[in-house]
Design a protein around this nucleic acid. Structure first.
Length: 606
RNA sequence: CGGGGCGUAGCGCAGGUUGGCAGCGCGCUUGGUUUGGGACCAAGAGGUCGGAGGUUCAAAUCCUCUCGCCCCGACCA
């Protein structure tokens, strides 16, 4: 591509609203153009990189038996009603009515359509297993998009769906994806670790997320260096400390003026925060309509007669720990939880800042298992300015649910080996779910087994955010000068920079550059040719660095006088002089070496 | 949804309190001089000051409403 004709321009200044390095650089280098919040156009450079990422994904998906299809973006709402994903619990699902009043939605994922396809295409166990995938635009009306391409509303996702007779088949496809995903990410130059994760909106049994470790990541991970335990903070399990061995002491009320926080309370009373209990208040919204679609996770704790109402939740953890809302939701078996308002807190007889489950009525009391077994904690008195000493769960109040509801923190003990966990930030570049039969049952995707018995197809779902992967690579590979693409996903292989010097060296550099441009392309090397006549050398070099192609060839009078052209790797400072006749071969060899370097990191497929 | 901030030329910004010709840098156009790390001279083009309403002789500036965007939090395949 001739840069003089290219449909993008580089910017000296990044747009003011760009925060992340990847966002700034992709915008400055002319890869992307924002249209609205979380909605971007992909300009030629980005498109080319995305094509390469998608090609890698297709190769790896095909290698594990995937068949590519395309499923619609616009979908009838009825399908989503049948699986229970239409209701208000999913506000990021955009919907509208078509001209005849039918409910429609923009797909944010395609489980419904796959299940519908499966019920139409699959009737016998002889047709299983299957693996289909597509690369398709999705739309999620994120409450808050941010971080350039890391978190957007409209995005392209590769998702694959496995269809199996049974769990054993699902396990095989799940494992095949796990390996394929590591290969995909590493082939793109993005190391990603797999972590245990929450199943969230997808439902299902098992979920693994693939996380690229970078401080720009939005997810918090807990990692154990000793045994390899890795989990998203949402589900990370920690080994809790042993509670003190003490006899329960009598309850005692003490004045604790202006001690609204655990830190103030602990300091005032001179006790460690670990000897306090804190209450956190939520309201569980049970507006999800009861019905067959929610049957599997019908709340044990919430009486179905209360459906379409809400329930006050009183969560109690030790003072030095934080509530993990995902775990709390799991304990409640409820999808929606919001912080309670002060009025709601007072309505159940508690006092904000001085809350405890002692003496409250009408609330669902969920107690962390560590609190349940810890004697003589300091807890609120539900009265402004007072706390209670020696509160004991079971004696002074009765929990409705005892469960692990605290968030693991840096330094907590690993649940598997006891060594300390540490936290890291990661970008979720992919995830894999064992869906089971939730969707196939809801939509009637059944097959006849060998005995002629109808059984629901066992499904799995596996996603990769293509644009997010690009942005993550940009986040990882850059320096002060700009981007620094891995050879496998760089939009072009080579920046060919010509420095003509009219009047002094005549046409020589331009002639050589034009010749090289043709020869390199003929050799299958992708060239971004900076043939701009009006750009100074400094501008060209800076733009080349900013765009970040793996190699740069400079054709100038100076190097020609020395007998060749200059070759430089973007990730190295050295420049080498290469004879014009050798440059194509040298570039090919350099590219092959870089590709080989990358390939070494990629594990064999199973 | 809660808190905070910002909308003035393609990008970055000033002007706003104190109402009075809409500016600066980069980029863009034309001509000339330059040519190995974001050159120089000269001449230009480009803005319904996000939108609507109001106050006023006069509004980018003051008031009301509204739309958009960003950050933190909440939430999240």
């Amino acid at each position: 591509m001739r840069q003089s004709k290219a449909f993008f321009q580089t910017l000296r200044d990044a747009p003011a609203d760009a925060e992340l390095t990847s966002h700034k650089l992709l915008a400055r280098a002319g890869f992307i153009q924002a249209l609205g919040a979380g909605i971007y156009s992909y300009l030629p450079l980005a498109r080319r990189s995305l094509d390469k990422i998608e090609a890698i994904i297709r190769e790896e998906m095909n290698a594990i038996g995937g068949q590519e299809i395309t499923m619609p973006v616009a979908q009838p709402g009825d399908l989503w009603k049948q699986t229970g994903r239409w209701d208000a619990a999913y506000p990021e699902l955009v919907h509208w009515q078509d001209r005849s009043g039918r409910d429609m939605t923009l797909a944010m994922t395609h489980e419904e359509v796959v299940a519908d396809l499966a019920r139409r295409q699959i009737s016998s166990y002889r047709q299983l297993p299957q693996l289909v995938y597509h690369l398709q635009t999705k739309f999620r009306d994120e409450p808050r998009s941010r971080g350039g391409l890391i978190r957007v509303r409209e995005f392209t996702m590769k998702d694959s769906y496995s269809l199996d007779m049974d769990d054993a088949g699902l396990d095989r496809q799940f494992e095949a994806h796990r390996i394929a995903y590591h290969r995909i990410f590493l082939r793109c130059g993005v190391p990603a670790i797999s972590v245990r994760a929450d199943v969230g909106i997808m439902g299902g049994k098992d979920s693994v997320e693939f996380m690229a470790l970078t401080p720009a990541g939005e997810d918090t991970l807990l990692l154990c260096d000793s045994c390899g335990y890795r989990a998203n903070r949402e589900v990370a399990v920690l080994q809790k400390p042993q509670p003190a061995e003490e006899r329960a002491l009598p309850l005692e009320k003490v004045a604790t003026p202006d001690c609204k926080t655990i830190a103030e309370l602990a300091a005032f009373l001179g006790v460690p925060e670990s000897r306090t209990a804190k209450a956190v208040f939520f309201v569980a919204e049970t507006d999800v309509k009861p019905g067959k679609e929610r049957k599997d996770d019908a709340a044990v704790a919430v009486d179905s007669s209360q459906a379409a109402s809400s329930r006050f939740v009183f969560a109690v953890t030790r003072g030095d720990m934080e509530v993990n809302e995902t775990k709390l939701r799991a304990a409640l078996k409820i999808g929606k939880l919001r912080p309670a308002t002060e009025e709601e807190i007072r309505a159940v007889g508690a006092e904000p800042g001085y809350g405890s489950p002692v003496g409250v009525a009408g609330a669902l009391v969920v107690v962390d298992d560590l609190v349940a077994s810890s004697p003589n904690l300091v807890s609120g008195a539900n009265e402004e300015g007072y706390h209670l000493l020696n509160v004991n769960c079971g004696r002074d109040y009765q929990p409705d649910i005892v469960a692990d509801i605290v968030a693991a923190a840096d330094g907590d003990a690993c649940s598997r080996c006891g060594n300390p966990l540490h936290v890291a930030r990661g970008v979720e570049v992919g995830n894999i779910f064992k869906l089971g039969t939730r969707y196939s049952e809801a939509l009637g995707a059944l097959y006849d087994d060998p005995a002629g018995v109808k059984r629901p197809i066992v499904m799995g779902s596996y996603g990769i955010g293509v644009g997010r992967l690009l942005a993550t690579a940009a986040e990882i590979y850059n320096d002060d000068g700009g981007l620094m693409w891995p050879v496998s996903i760089a939009p072009f292989h080579v920046s060919l920079v010509v420095l003509p010097r009219p009047g002094k060296s005549g046409a020589a550099p331009l002639d050589v550059a034009e010749k090289l441009y043709a020869e390199l392309q003929a050799a299958g090397i992708e060239v971004l040719y900076d043939d701009r006549e009006d750009a100074s050398p400094g501008v060209k070099f800076n733009d080349a660095d900013l765009i970040g192609l793996p190699l740069r060839i400079t054709v100038g009078a100076r190097s020609l006088e020395q007998g060749g052209v200059e070759l430089k790797r973007r990730d190295q400072a050295e420049r080498q002089l290469v004879a014009v006749d050798d440059i194509v071969a040298t570039v090919a060899a350099e590219l092959a070496a870089m590709q080989a370097e990358l390939d070494k990191t990629v594990p064999d497929s199973a």
